[in-house]
Amino acid sequence: MYRTSQMAASILVNAIYAMKNFPITLVNTLLSPLSFLLVITLASHGRLLSVSVGGALIMSMISSGIGLQGDLSHLKNDFKLQDMVVSSPTTASVYIVGMAISEIVYSIPAIAVLGILATIYIHTTVLGVFQIIAVMVLMFSFSILLGFTLATITYDIIQSWAFSGIISTLMSTIPPVYYPITYIPMPFRYAAYASPTTYGAELVQNAIGFAHLSGTAFMVDWIILIMINVVFFIIAVKKARWREV
């Protein structure tokens, strides 16, 4: 029971109370993933609408990690919340899981709107729906692990803002998240595969029938996404500094 209370504390601090006391944050979380969707849809005359909705879903997941690293750094460095929590019965894992859930709670308005758009504009099979959900789960866990790892090495909000901008650009703007990878000229296409979101986007685009992956490419994408999660999990566990040394 007390673990639930401890997780609830993080969700309240980082999402519920923030949204309750400053409702404007709801608008921000809603608009961020929709901005690119709108631009790409207009630029493609609606042809890339379904792909963009999938991309916006991926960006929502990545935004959670971006948000997490910023929020953890802010709470740790500017309010010393983490120091107070370390000296309490709350464990590192409970604190982080609570904070991760708070990011999802924070994204609920955006996810709800995107979910409605996906229902309307993405036409796929039941298996395709499960694939999209699985990709979102992996994107979310990757972004949270990345955000947590970065938060442990961040000592100032200025650093945190810089990380946010870099991750956002490298993970959801440059990679072909909102459009097919075939739109990128060949020599640069390989660079896109440096971002985990490219694999996620390929799988989503495959699930909605916009891209057609070969069996091998399909398997490789899944394996890479899972491996990236495993690697970042190991890094996060090794790098995590709950009790400082």
């Binding site: 401890q6 309240l12 309010f79 919340l81 120091d83 709350t90």
Partner: peptide, 24 residues
């Protein structure tokens, strides 16, 4: 340490107690 700016005193103390395992 600073009281978190976007919380109220009530919310601050309540969340601190939740971190210590108390029921809401």
């Amino acid at each position: 340490a600073r009281a978190i700016s976007w919380l109220t005193p009530m919310q601050t103390v309540t969340t601190f107690l939740l971190y210590r395992g108390m029921k809401y």
